[in-house]
């Protein structure tokens, strides 16, 4: 079964990004497919590669980047939410005249159309948020 996931809460806030990660891991282990995870609202902050949590603590960004690398999950960040919060890829940084970008491996910036498409193409849509 194809399961799409939406995350709308930032990392290290309550638990949404952690719960979602454990859910996705369990879904893949059970033989389901998670083709895409969409990061919306404060959830886009998961995608910054500049976060440096203590070494003995979970690294939420690296967990997701690792999942994308291992399973090919498409990690999509909402562009409008990302721009407001200073989350940029190389293209956006150039386009906006900024001196750096901060998006982590495995994530890409795109639009809400990707959320709608995920809702249409997946059998289930599961939301994690605040």
């Amino acid at each position: 079964m194809k399961i799409g996931v939406l995350i709308s809460e930032g990392p290290y806030t309550h638990q949404a990004a952690d719960t979602a990660f454990k859910f996705v891991t369990a879904a893949i282990a059970a033989g389901h497919e998670v083709p895409r995870v969409f990061f919306y609202h404060d959830g886009v902050n998961v995608a910054t590669r500049l976060s440096v949590p203590p070494q003995d603590e979970r690294n939420i960004q690296q967990n997701w980047s690792g999942l994308a690398k291992e399973h090919g999950t498409d990690l999509v960040v909402c562009i409008a939410a990302a721009q407001r919060r200073g989350l940029l890829d190389e293209n956006e940084a150039n386009r906006q005249g900024k001196d750096a970008n901060n998006i982590a491996d495995g994530f890409r910036i795109s639009g809400l159309g990707q959320l709608i498409e995920m809702g249409i193409q997946c059998d289930r849509l599961v939301t994690f948020g605040d």
Binding site: I3, A26, A30, T127, G129
Partner: peptide, 19 residues
């Protein structure tokens, strides 16, 4: 457990998060 969570998502027709 999380495996049960996944099964519930699969067994029901849709999921509604009360955020």
């Amino acid at each position: 457990g999380y495996d049960g969570f996944v099964n519930l998502v699969a067994e029901t027709d849709r999921t509604q998060a009360w955020l």
